[in-house]
Computed example of a mutant assay.
Amino acid sequence: MEVPMIARRSSWTGGGVQERLRRLNLITTVPPLVIVGLLLLFLTARSWWHVVIQVVGLVAALATAERWTAGDYLRVARPSLVVTAVVWLAGALTDDTAAFFGLSVVGSYLIPPLPRHRLAALGGLAALIAALGATNALVHDDRIGWRLFQFAAVPAFAMLFSTAFMFASQRFFDLIAELEQSREREAELAVTRERVRFAGDLHDIQGHTLHVVKLKVALAEKLLDREPDRAREELREVHSLVGDTIVQTKELAYAQRRLNLSAELENAKNLFEAAGIHVRVERESEVDDAASELLGQVLRETTTNILRHAEARQVRITLTRRGIAIVNDGAPDTGPLELSGLAVLRHRLAGHGAELEVSHSDGRFRTAAAFPAPKEARR
């Protein structure tokens, strides 16, 4: 027997979540870094040495960004921090004002994920960038104030700005990851719900059938010596019932099974009469087609419970347009008021806006299900 298609879906959900997030991160981080890095290169590089310095810093920054999108950046970011620091020192000593770009990018990736002391790390990195940039003033003795502003203050501020942007970017991607995880959990929950529904339907079919088979086989055994023809008839019915159950189980596996209330009603009458229980059916009106299938499930579950748990002599089934009520005598005074099968049905009916009520009084057990009237009918 094949498992319903939705039951296999759990192996598909979640597998591409991390890859989708990685692609999104790559698209939103790497191209802007390349554009800004190349723009600085064209605008500020005044010699081939400046080109080499900035390209090395940009490559280190891009390597860190690429590994960050994969969630494995620390082993790349730490050596990249050293490389870009050397690049910025070389740039400061050769008047390359844009060489700090790689160091500011790598630093901005390292600080936000820290579990604590992020402000201290941010201040230390800003001081490092300022200190390395201040070496420019050591090799030039003109315009000291301007050089300190250009090579120390501006790069430090740029690093603070890029780190603040990374804080916001990381929060954004965290929200996207939470959303993807939430969608994955919802898909898994849907699979679980479908499995529970499938298990409930399988219980309805096979649990009911097995109990009926047990009753009919016991009856055939009693009739075997004194009424062999009737015993053979009971065994033929058992054979037919098992065949029908196999068909229903296949239909359930392929999501093609629908209960027919009329057929369930006729089946319930036959079962009760075979067990020596008098059954009376009262139809107050024709049952609405929209409620027929679920009401058929209620009747089937209740019939099984009566045959299994009660010593009933009489059963009364009342049908209304959008409801059903089954009352039986012979209910035991002890034991749970609501059996597990009815609890599952209550939940299933609630999902369709219907209510299931059970009550026990004076040896009588009442099971009733009702759908609310359509809005048009209540106006």
Results as ranks from 00 to 15, higher is better:
residue 289 D to W: 01
residue 103 L to M: 15
residue 353 G to F: 11
residue 123 G to I: 11
residue 358 V to C: 08
residue 197 R to S: 06
residue 328 N to E: 12
residue 118 R to A: 10
residue 359 S to Y: 04
residue 31 P to H: 10
residue 106 V to D: 07
residue 49 W to S: 03
residue 224 L to D: 06
residue 181 Q to D: 15
residue 21 L to K: 09
residue 360 H to G: 12
residue 364 R to V: 00
residue 323 G to D: 08
residue 326 I to E: 08
residue 331 A to N: 05
residue 367 T to G: 05
residue 91 G to N: 03
residue 296 G to R: 04
residue 377 A to E: 15
residue 328 N to R: 11
residue 55 V to P: 00
residue 165 F to C: 13
residue 60 A to H: 04
residue 23 R to N: 11
residue 11 S to E: 14
residue 142 D to G: 05
residue 192 T to C: 01
residue 332 P to V: 08
residue 56 V to Q: 01
residue 102 G to E: 03
residue 81 L to H: 12
residue 98 A to G: 06
residue 244 D to Q: 14
residue 161 F to T: 10
residue 39 L to W: 12
residue 324 I to L: 15
residue 99 A to P: 03
residue 229 D to A: 12
residue 91 G to W: 03
residue 305 N to A: 13
residue 288 D to I: 03
residue 288 D to L: 02
residue 118 R to S: 13
residue 58 L to H: 07
residue 300 R to Y: 00
residue 9 R to L: 15
residue 350 A to C: 00
residue 83 V to M: 05
residue 203 H to L: 05
residue 194 E to H: 15
residue 214 K to R: 14
residue 245 T to Y: 02
residue 158 A to K: 10
residue 163 T to P: 01
residue 194 E to Q: 11
residue 22 R to C: 12
residue 343 A to I: 12
residue 66 E to M: 11
residue 18 Q to Y: 02
residue 357 E to D: 14
residue 353 G to Y: 09
residue 51 V to H: 01
residue 249 T to R: 06
residue 72 D to G: 07
residue 330 G to F: 07
residue 86 V to I: 15
residue 257 R to C: 09
residue 86 V to C: 14
residue 299 L to H: 09
residue 150 Q to Y: 03
residue 299 L to P: 06
residue 77 A to F: 11
residue 332 P to Q: 07
residue 204 D to L: 14
residue 260 N to E: 13
residue 136 N to M: 01
residue 300 R to M: 12
residue 300 R to N: 11
residue 348 R to N: 12
residue 154 V to I: 14
residue 25 N to Y: 10
residue 372 P to K: 05
residue 206 Q to I: 11
residue 209 T to M: 09
residue 193 R to N: 11
